[in-house]
Amino acid sequence: MLELIVLLIFMIAAGIVAVEIKDLLASVIALGAVGFAVAIGFIMLAAPDLAIVQIVIEVLSVVFFVAVILKTTHVDSTLGRPYKGGDIFTFVVFGMFALAFVYFGVRLLAGLAPMSRELGQVASHYLTQGLAETGAVNRVTSVVLDYRALDTLGEATVLFTAVIGVLAVLRLEGRKK
């Protein structure tokens, strides 16, 4: 488990760099570092399906960010501006929320006790009966496309909506009257 903790510390450090650095291109590259660390973590957590998807999607997401930044500007001009009273209030509220979030998150996850848990009924049914019921060796595929295929249909709808939204927002010429 030590390697996962080291990986998570690296992810948090790269995330702080991505949030605080002045150059937006460097910020996006630090975000890519976090994404690749997530992919390595998926391999450590015995999830090769997720690792493949995460690597490719991370590359594409960095490409999208860079395509936007190259068209506009890559200097964050809002850093270094003096803070006003309202900003300090925002920081205080965020600090209080962070403390409460960590406290209740620890209390909630302590009841979960993930690393020593026996597999639940549903998961062991998928593992033992999945091949006989669906014929797929890869149990993740059998869950995605057979047991919970309606969820996948909803996902396809969300992706379709996102593409339509992008096409509609970036249309330059208005409707002909």
């Binding site: 090769p48 998807v53 490719v56 999607i57 797929a136 060796v137 890869n138 993740v140 595929t141």
Partner: peptide, 17 residues
């Protein structure tokens, strides 16, 4: 996708890449 890691989501993203 039904035999090894991967599937429609991963493969489609790789083709697009």
């Amino acid at each position: 996708g039904h035999l090894s890691p991967g599937g429609g989501f991963a493969g489609g993203a790789i083709i697009a890449a």
